[in-house]
Design a protein around this nucleic acid. Structure first.
Lengths: 342, 342
DNA sequence: AAGAATTGCGTGAACGATAACGCATAAGTA
DNA sequence: TACTTATGCGTTATCGTTCACGCAATTCTT
């Protein structure tokens, strides 16, 4: 691999000149610059990242705008773990992160976090945003300086200038859930518990689920709602379903609160197929107990890890990154669970 | 993070002395060494990897002993992809790899590859071994110099001094396959196609499969064999099964040759549940077509990637690494396939 | 006791990039 | 004309290691 020094020799200039050309720092004659650039192309120069981050005085500051970890049945701990892991690895590359957590059910809370970010915006080199509160987030990103890079995690805002989106394909994930339910119940009657308030992901999962069964009219599906803010709401909803639908064969829980549903199913002493989401601690316990049949995992830890890494690569290494990364939808059951933990 | 220079100042010695202490290069008074070591402990010194690999003249050479990529229905391309990806990333850290591929059905071929390795052994810093031919591999590792680090990929040799094993838990993987088959066929009669010649993994998968159904006597299971050396053998075996067992509900193919089985199932025009292994190209096609219902993937690409990375971390960074990494057993179906492809 | 070998320690040149600085020469301004 | 300012380019210190080298002081030879 060619070095700046070698290129300098080939172009009959000094190392400093090559450096100036590469970084467009000016103070180079047009002719010389062209000559250098040609050679740079020719030898397919790639800067040595090691040398760069060793020499560069620059520290990168990334802001992380995500919901409080406890929210959505402790779901938000998972991406955070991945973010923290990436941050640790990136320490040697002079990367520092700061969390600006918010309450995902409170626009004011998001606004306050956003305000914090904007206050220090000149010393922030990039943002990782989970735009769960889409309206508030949409407003926020218009207030960002144009140069500022940001990546969306988990959710997405169309027509934004985000560098990349990392998350699941929710529709397909609902479809997958339906396929599993179809196998478990032999296309029996099933209930969907939709988390409210409105969330793009959840809606999409439910749409995916319903669309799978559209072609199977024998498999009846009923949709119910439960509030993801109130931890008991899912349990109550499930209990209601079980009480009023003695012929129900399965329940699909559209978010990480599946353990609440499991409690109700367990209490009913009936054999009900249960498909849910995400490897939060309590879900894992109910999966092990055999009350939850399948959990669909969206590799939440990996999502966080990859998101921060991509932000780093885009901002620090100026790499072009893929506009979207759809993470695998892992099907987790009692039999393969242990290999997904950590 | 403390640097050598800082430690040197704290210990009232020069940078070079600290370096000698840390690397046990001698030429340091016992007293001085102790003093330096205490401070090194105290400040929890971690060498800066960037600076290290930038300055170090040392290039690491790792040998890769794996079967030819085409073997086992092109299976061995997958780990190789991961190894290559890791090698590319590790280039800046001065890592070079060399393949010593062998024919997994020919002990002589392995011996020849091993001979090649031994010939250049003094310039090799570590080995990645897929000890598929366990006897030959066992003999080989006794011939290695004691200092030489090696990691097992895919398969394992007990009582060896390997740094780590990376692969699947085959028994559990067979169990998982059985669970899926049980769902697909409602505990109907199923056939297992066991790949021969003898292979520890395959045996274990089959044992896992059978053990799952032991508790369900209604679900009859028959075991057949097919040679993984002869590409048509699986197709023929499947055709035989389908012909002689009109009441069969599902086939479990114990290795990556599942696409051969799919051909036979497709030709029979019967609706047969089919569970197989690994995301090789042809398997993916039959999964998309709906002939294969589930593929269990052992993250073969990731296996390769992680294996080389661990070898690097163990040898170059002298990190302690986990003695075993059981990769997740991914359940891949038509609905979530696309997110597993690369 | 004179010379050789060993021990203890410091020095300084890499590695490849960043970025400040300095110094000519050229162009613009009063 | 004498000055500032801009342009074009080279030089050099720095980041944190590695590692060869060199030079005393000490110890071992014979």
């Amino acid at each position: 691999m060619a070095t700046l020094k070698e290129i300098a020799e080939m172009a009959n200039v000094s190392l400093g000149t090559v450096d100036r050309v590469i970084h467009n720092r000016g103070r180079v004659a047009a002719e010389t610059a062209a000559r250098v650039r040609r050679i740079v192309e020719q030898v397919n120069y790639r800067p040595n990242i090691l040398a760069r981050s060793l020499s560069s005085a620059k520290t990168f500051h990334f802001g992380i705008l995500v919901p409080f970890p406890e929210q959505d049945g402790n779901y938000w701990y998972l991406p955070r773990q991945g973010i923290d892991r990436a941050a640790e690895e990136l320490q040697v590359y002079k990367v520092e992160i700061e969390y600006f957590p918010y309450d995902k059910y409170d626009e004011n809370s998001f606004a306050a976090a956003a305000q914090q970010v904007l206050k220090n915006i000149h010393q922030i080199d990039g943002l990782l945003i989970a735009p769960v509160l889409s309206k508030a987030a949409e407003k926020f990103i218009t207030q960002l300086p144009k140069r500022l890079a940001y990546i969306f995690l988990d959710s997405y805002i169309p027509r934004s200038h985000c560098l990349s989106y990392i998350g699941e394909d929710s529709f397909q994930s609902g479809l997958l859930a339906a396929k599993l339910m179809s196998l478990l119940t032999h296309d029996g009657k099933s209930a969907v518990i939709k988390a409210i308030p409105f969330n793009y992901h959840i809606e999409d999962r439910v749409r995916g689920y319903l669309s799978y069964f559209e072609s199977k009219p024998s498999a009846k599906v009923f949709v119910f709602e439960a509030s993801s803010q109130d931890s008991c709401s899912f349990q109550n909803a499930a209990a209601q379903i079980l009480e009023h639908h003695p012929d129900i064969k399965g329940i699909f829980c559209s978010n990480a609160c599946s353990f609440q549903v499991a409690k109700a199913v367990y209490a009913s002493r009936r054999r009900i197929a249960l498909v849910g989401y995400d490897l939060v601690k309590e879900n894992i316990e109910w999966l092990e107990k055999g009350v939850i049949d399948f959990l669909i995992s969206q590799r939440s830890e990996i999502q966080g890890y990859n998101a921060l890494y991509r932000l780093y690569r885009a901002v620090a290494l100026k790499e072009k990154i893929e506009p979207a990364l759809y993470v695998p939808l892992d099907i987790v059951t009692k039999e393969n669970l242990r290999y997904y933990q950590n």
